[in-house]
Amino acid sequence: MTGRLPSLNWLRVFEAAARTESFARAAQQLHMSPAAVSQQVKSLEERLGAPLFVRKAHSVALTDAGRAYLAPVQQSLMTLEEATEGLFGQSREQGLYVQCVLIFAHGVLAPGLQGFEAAHPGLSVVLSTGNSAQDFQQGFFDLKIIFGNPHAYGAESDRIMGEWLYPAATPEVAARITQASDLLNWPLIEVGTHRSGWRQMLESLRVMPGAGRMVFADSTVMAMAMAKAGRGIALARAPASDAEMQGAGLVPCLGDARVRGSQAYHLVYEDLSALRPPARKFRDWLLGWVRAQGWD
């Protein structure tokens, strides 16, 4: 097999046949003859050098290779459809595709999106969330809101805001922390993917970081859930985590003790001059709305 990709028509036929488990039903959906569906699937199998279906009398079943191939094919076709509709669609309601870090979507975007859409009738924000770098490499999106290094996600970006870190726990635990060294009596829940964390917090409080017992979470949302369950003390990351913290019933420890984080949230895109009009409107709104809240 050479590096050239299979025909898009072959992939569409393969997906329909796999989904319906029938060449005849796939033919009906695609307005083709069953013989044409069978021939295109055969051409794809020859191109790939492996059988994708087990042929039965009145149906077909995916082979192991076909089952493994189906998911990326469906994802690719969906991405192409989203990109086509997002860029060229003529529907009455225009979609704006935004991918966002979960904690930012929950704590920052959710309170403001209704106002944005009310001010721009006919424009609907299609929002999806993620946390890992891999999450942000899939699908079509006009804009991405990420935390950390923006250059890893796109060519151009705007800084949206930073964060403030402070210890947060259940009211029962927080009441027992009267001085910084008391923090070491509980496990400290760390989000390992963040550059700023407990070490920076403890150093600012003049407590030896090495004395702390660390447990790890993959996100601030999970860290808050663990603190709510009594697993230890989390680090709030204000203001993005405010809503999550309130929902978990957590309160600050040590009054107003806090430290400035070293990373920030960024709005990422490939080319400002090439942004579609809905994306430009969203960019202007988001940057202005965050400033109006007094967040930086």
Rank of each mutant, 00 (worst) to 15 (best):
residue 75 Q to F: 00
residue 109 L to S: 08
residue 75 Q to V: 00
residue 93 E to D: 09
residue 89 G to T: 02
residue 82 E to H: 09
residue 64 D to A: 13
residue 81 E to N: 03
residue 85 E to W: 08
residue 114 Q to A: 14
residue 88 F to A: 08
residue 69 Y to M: 10
residue 110 A to T: 14
residue 111 P to M: 01
residue 90 Q to M: 05
residue 86 G to T: 00
residue 93 E to I: 06
residue 102 L to P: 05
residue 71 A to P: 04
residue 90 Q to Y: 06
residue 73 V to C: 10
residue 114 Q to T: 11
residue 61 A to S: 15
residue 104 F to T: 07
residue 113 L to G: 08
residue 97 Y to M: 08
residue 80 L to Q: 10
residue 62 L to V: 11
residue 91 S to L: 02
residue 61 A to H: 14
residue 103 I to C: 11
residue 61 A to I: 07
residue 108 V to I: 15
residue 89 G to A: 02
residue 86 G to S: 01
residue 109 L to I: 04
residue 113 L to A: 06
residue 105 A to M: 06
residue 95 G to E: 04
residue 77 L to Q: 10
residue 94 Q to M: 02
residue 89 G to L: 01
residue 101 V to K: 02
residue 104 F to L: 07
residue 81 E to I: 00
residue 107 G to A: 10
residue 66 G to R: 10
residue 94 Q to F: 00
residue 108 V to G: 14
residue 75 Q to D: 04
residue 78 M to K: 01
residue 70 L to H: 07
residue 92 R to G: 08
residue 63 T to A: 11
residue 99 Q to R: 15
residue 82 E to D: 08
residue 112 G to P: 00
residue 84 T to A: 12
residue 62 L to A: 14
residue 71 A to D: 12
residue 68 A to K: 09
residue 103 I to Q: 05
residue 93 E to R: 12
residue 84 T to G: 06
residue 74 Q to E: 13
residue 65 A to E: 11
residue 107 G to S: 12
residue 94 Q to H: 10
residue 99 Q to T: 14
residue 66 G to I: 03
residue 71 A to K: 14
residue 104 F to S: 09
residue 116 F to R: 13
residue 76 S to Q: 11
residue 107 G to H: 14
residue 112 G to A: 01
residue 81 E to M: 02
residue 89 G to P: 07
residue 100 C to M: 01
residue 90 Q to H: 12
residue 108 V to E: 10
residue 108 V to T: 11
residue 114 Q to I: 02
residue 68 A to Y: 02
residue 85 E to Q: 10
residue 96 L to R: 08
residue 81 E to A: 09
residue 68 A to D: 03
residue 78 M to R: 04
residue 68 A to V: 03
residue 65 A to Q: 13
residue 114 Q to H: 11
residue 64 D to V: 10
residue 74 Q to I: 03
residue 110 A to H: 15
residue 76 S to Y: 07
residue 112 G to V: 00
residue 105 A to K: 13
residue 110 A to D: 14
residue 114 Q to V: 03
residue 117 E to C: 06
residue 106 H to C: 04
residue 102 L to V: 05
residue 68 A to T: 04
residue 108 V to K: 14
residue 72 P to D: 08
residue 113 L to E: 04
residue 94 Q to C: 05
residue 105 A to T: 03
residue 93 E to Y: 09
residue 65 A to F: 13
residue 71 A to C: 02
residue 95 G to W: 01
residue 76 S to W: 06
residue 84 T to M: 06
residue 107 G to K: 13
residue 83 A to Y: 09
residue 97 Y to V: 05
residue 92 R to E: 11
residue 97 Y to K: 12
